[in-house]
Amino acid sequence: MSSLPEWIDERIDRNLDNTLTQAHVVETMLDADRPFFSIRQLQARIKPDVSTATVRNRLNELQAIDVVATETYPESITLYYINHPEADWPLSPTGKRQLASESPLDRLSAWGFLTMRDTAGIRTLALAGLQLTLLLLTLGALLTIVGLDIGVTSSDVVFWDTAFDLLFVSLGILLTERVVRWLRRRFGSSDLIPVL
């Protein structure tokens, strides 16, 4: 288990007589790769096995000392998360820094594109292509209206051809990403549509 951040370590109760300590609950939450937990999700991760009531009691104690916060949703679902003082809910300071420094295109890898796994990056790429298509169509229209010919190209029609090619490629990428996402939701992961 990882050591607790100083701001948490100062607040928690070190009562070792409890079957489940506050420190153990917080360490379990920090070591997981997820920001939110229901009581049952935490109970499943905590060893030794403890009752739901015990997990709820420790979470209530941690909420009272402002280490853990909650968000309640319809149908009485309550999710618990670490209440990081340096970041806005529900981001950890690390998550906030990563979001500020990376765009979806920065995270898009060749493998993420080929497997259609990084949907945010793929959509950003497709939307950038659509915006470039609009720019090329506008430039082609202006050159046609004005009747100018650019020395680099033999005709302004090249802009029209490039714009339509880019439009079809961008729409194709966007459509493929939507179809793959729909197939994954409907049928789950398969060898034909890898998740990795």
Score class of each variant (00 low, 15 high):
residue 88 D to V: 09
residue 131 Q to R: 02
residue 166 L to N: 12
residue 99 L to N: 08
residue 33 D to M: 03
residue 20 L to N: 03
residue 154 S to M: 02
residue 134 L to A: 15
residue 83 N to M: 06
residue 112 G to P: 03
residue 2 S to C: 10
residue 69 A to D: 14
residue 143 L to I: 11
residue 50 V to G: 05
residue 150 I to H: 06
residue 140 G to H: 07
residue 10 E to K: 11
residue 11 R to S: 11
residue 105 L to V: 04
residue 139 L to K: 03
residue 29 M to H: 07
residue 122 I to R: 01
residue 107 R to Y: 01
residue 14 R to Y: 13
residue 99 L to R: 14
residue 149 D to T: 15
residue 188 G to K: 01
residue 184 R to M: 05
residue 180 V to T: 07
residue 177 E to T: 13
residue 43 Q to P: 01
residue 157 V to G: 03
residue 196 L to H: 07
residue 48 P to G: 10
residue 136 L to E: 08
residue 164 F to S: 02
residue 21 T to E: 08
residue 119 T to E: 10
residue 178 R to N: 09
residue 94 T to G: 00
residue 16 L to M: 11
residue 2 S to L: 15
residue 178 R to Y: 09
residue 97 R to D: 13
residue 20 L to P: 01
residue 165 D to H: 04
residue 140 G to N: 01
residue 116 M to T: 03
residue 146 V to I: 15
residue 71 E to K: 11
residue 119 T to R: 10
residue 116 M to D: 02
residue 11 R to C: 06
residue 127 L to R: 13
residue 126 A to I: 05
residue 114 L to P: 00
residue 111 W to S: 04
residue 45 R to S: 03
residue 174 L to N: 08
residue 179 V to T: 06
residue 161 D to C: 04
residue 68 V to C: 05
residue 34 R to V: 14
residue 99 L to D: 07
residue 178 R to Q: 13
residue 181 R to V: 12
residue 5 P to H: 11
residue 46 I to W: 07
residue 92 S to R: 12
residue 115 T to F: 08
residue 96 K to D: 14
residue 99 L to K: 14
residue 47 K to E: 14
residue 70 T to N: 08
residue 58 R to G: 05
residue 109 S to N: 08
residue 23 A to Q: 13
residue 1 M to H: 10
residue 83 N to D: 15
residue 59 L to N: 03
residue 77 I to Y: 11
residue 141 A to W: 08
residue 180 V to E: 01
residue 156 D to E: 13
residue 81 Y to I: 10
residue 101 S to M: 11
residue 31 D to L: 15
residue 113 F to D: 04
residue 77 I to E: 14
residue 15 N to A: 09
residue 57 N to F: 12
residue 36 F to T: 05
residue 45 R to Q: 11
residue 163 A to K: 09
residue 148 L to I: 15
residue 129 G to C: 05
residue 102 E to F: 14
residue 74 P to T: 08
residue 128 A to G: 03
residue 134 L to R: 06
residue 2 S to P: 06
residue 45 R to A: 07
residue 193 I to S: 00
residue 88 D to T: 11
residue 70 T to P: 04
residue 113 F to Q: 06
residue 10 E to W: 10
residue 148 L to T: 10
residue 86 E to S: 12
residue 151 G to H: 04
residue 170 S to D: 03
residue 183 L to K: 01
residue 34 R to G: 06
residue 111 W to A: 01
residue 31 D to W: 12
residue 115 T to R: 09
residue 34 R to S: 11
residue 159 F to T: 07
residue 115 T to L: 06
residue 194 P to H: 05
residue 132 L to K: 00
residue 149 D to H: 14
residue 138 T to W: 09
residue 56 R to G: 05
residue 34 R to E: 12
residue 184 R to S: 01
residue 104 P to L: 08
residue 96 K to R: 15
residue 134 L to G: 14
residue 31 D to Q: 13
residue 33 D to K: 09
residue 17 D to R: 13
residue 101 S to F: 04
residue 75 E to A: 07
residue 72 T to C: 04
residue 26 V to H: 07
residue 167 L to Q: 02
residue 113 F to H: 04
residue 32 A to M: 11
